[in-house]
Simulated scan of single mutants.
Amino acid sequence: MNKVVLIFTGGTIAMKVDQSSGGAIPTLTSDDLINTLSGLGDFNNLIAHEYSSMPSPFITPNNMRELADIVEDYLSKDDIKGVTVVHGTDVLEETAFYLNSTVKSNKPIVLTGSMKNASELGYDGLTNLVSSVKVCLSDESIGRGVLVVMNDTINSSYEVTKTHTLSLDTFKSIEFGPLGIIDQDEVIYYRNVSHFKKFSLDNKINNQTHLVKIYAGISNDYLEHLINTGAKGIVLEALGRGNVPPNLITSIDKAVKAGIHIVLVSRCFAGRVLDTYAYPGGGKDLTNHGCILGGSLNGQKARILLMLAISNNLNHNEIKKLFKI
């Protein structure tokens, strides 16, 4: 019998408006949500695992590490077809990417949540749960890595990002589009991810990997502080193709010589970084100083991958190969 595990972490999907506080707070339990789905065809064989009732901003890499162990354990069982992690949307893409980087099983793993709480008209939580279970039950979902299912669309955790603070259609793969859709009872895939990587790194973390967004006129104080407080890795969300103001070069050079791994990604929504420009602070100049190109990953995912790479004791060349697309 094929069973799907629903791991509940919390988020808007489990919230209602509290009149005394005037805002949405955690209210619904996993049983509340499961009972709503019970008796509906494919939804008789669900297993509920209540991990937490945390809003998305409460989730840390340590929680992601624990979730990866839980998911891996469930997927090792023969009667488990797949796992859906029910999650708040704010850092959902980071948890999805973390699981994609560490869980070794090829069985379907889906992350979902909702943009509206259960007190609002148009509450999307139950629809997203139903769609996620269907994706887990589809044989076509096997071997596609960790997926994000929202608003009847299927996206790769490698590509997807949250694009809007309100829209139900917030999770998008900006450059390439969704992998597929859920149309009533049918799970339909339109494409594969040709550049997809399932990293299968050991499930280890550190708290010394950081993300810095580059902007016009940025001081090198941020980098100097990270160097002086024991940073192991820094992701620079750089300008354009992977460029930074020239005043940062001294601190970047200092960091690299101190053994701190620096990865470059772009603050642009689409496109990859490349060492095109050789002027001081340009991408070519930065790679000559020992920086690593982060491909088309966004800053938050690159930080997750660099954190895992450092925790897995990969050297500079191994990390460079890891990020290469």
Rank of each mutant, 00 (worst) to 15 (best):
N2F: 00
V4F: 01
F8L: 08
V17S: 05
V17C: 03
V17P: 03
Q19A: 15
S21E: 10
P26H: 13
S30Y: 04
L33D: 07
N35F: 06
L40A: 08
D42G: 10
A48Q: 11
H49G: 02
S56W: 08
D69K: 14
K77A: 15
K77E: 13
H87W: 06
G88N: 09
T89H: 03
N100L: 09
S101I: 11
T102V: 15
S105G: 06
S105F: 01
N117D: 12
Y123H: 02
L126G: 01
S132L: 02
K134G: 05
L137W: 03
G145P: 04
G145I: 14
N155Y: 01
T161A: 10
T163N: 07
T165K: 01
F176Q: 07
F176P: 00
G177Q: 03
P178D: 12
L179H: 03
I181P: 03
I188N: 08
I188R: 12
R191N: 14
F196E: 10
S200I: 02
D202E: 14
S219R: 09
L223C: 08
N228G: 12
G242S: 11
S251W: 00
K257D: 06
A258H: 15
A258Q: 14
L274C: 13
Y279W: 08
I292F: 13
Q300V: 12
Q300T: 02
K301N: 00
K301Q: 07
L306D: 08
A309S: 15
S311K: 07
